[in-house]
Computed example of a mutant assay.
Amino acid sequence: MADAQDKVRIDKWLWAARFFKTRSLATDAVEGGRVHLNGDRPKPARTVKPGDVVRVQVEHGEFTVTVLALAERRGSADVARTLYVEGEESIRKREALAFERSLAPQLDPAVVKGRPTKKLRRQIDRFGSGS
Rank of each mutant, 00 (worst) to 15 (best):
A4S: 11
K113F: 12
I10C: 03
Y84C: 00
T117W: 00
V111M: 03
P44V: 05
E89W: 06
V54W: 03
V54R: 10
I10F: 02
F99Q: 12
A2V: 13
T47F: 08
E88Y: 11
K21E: 15
A2Y: 08
R74E: 06
G128R: 15
R41C: 00
A16V: 08
L25P: 08
S76V: 08
N38Y: 03
A29I: 03
P42V: 02
L83A: 04
E100P: 00
A2R: 11
T47H: 13
S76N: 08
R18N: 10
Q57A: 14
G33H: 15
A71W: 08
D52I: 07
A29V: 05
R9S: 06
E72R: 01
K93W: 07
V56T: 02
A71T: 01
V56S: 06
D3K: 14
R81S: 12
A26V: 07
L120W: 04
P42S: 01
R121G: 01
T66R: 01
A16R: 04
R23L: 11
V56E: 01
R74F: 07
A29E: 04
L68A: 13
V35Y: 12
P50E: 06
K43A: 13
H60V: 10
L37K: 02
G128Q: 13
R18I: 07
L70R: 09
Y84H: 08
I91M: 04
L103F: 01
P42E: 06
E95L: 10
S76D: 14
R94A: 10
K21W: 15
L25Y: 13
G39M: 01
V85C: 10
E100T: 12
G39S: 05
P109M: 02
A45F: 10
Q123S: 00
V53M: 05
L70I: 05
M1N: 08
A45N: 11
P109R: 07
P44D: 10
E86A: 09
Q106A: 08
R46I: 09
L97Q: 09
S76Q: 11
L25E: 12
K43D: 13
T47G: 04
K7W: 14
V30H: 10
V8Y: 02
I10M: 04
V54L: 13
G33N: 15
R23I: 10
H36W: 06
K21N: 15
D3V: 11
R9D: 11
S90Y: 08
Q5A: 04
H36Y: 04
G75H: 12
P50L: 13
K113W: 10
E89Y: 04
L83W: 00
S129M: 05
E95P: 01
A26P: 12
W13M: 07
E88N: 09
G61N: 09
F20T: 09
W15F: 11
V8A: 02
P116N: 00
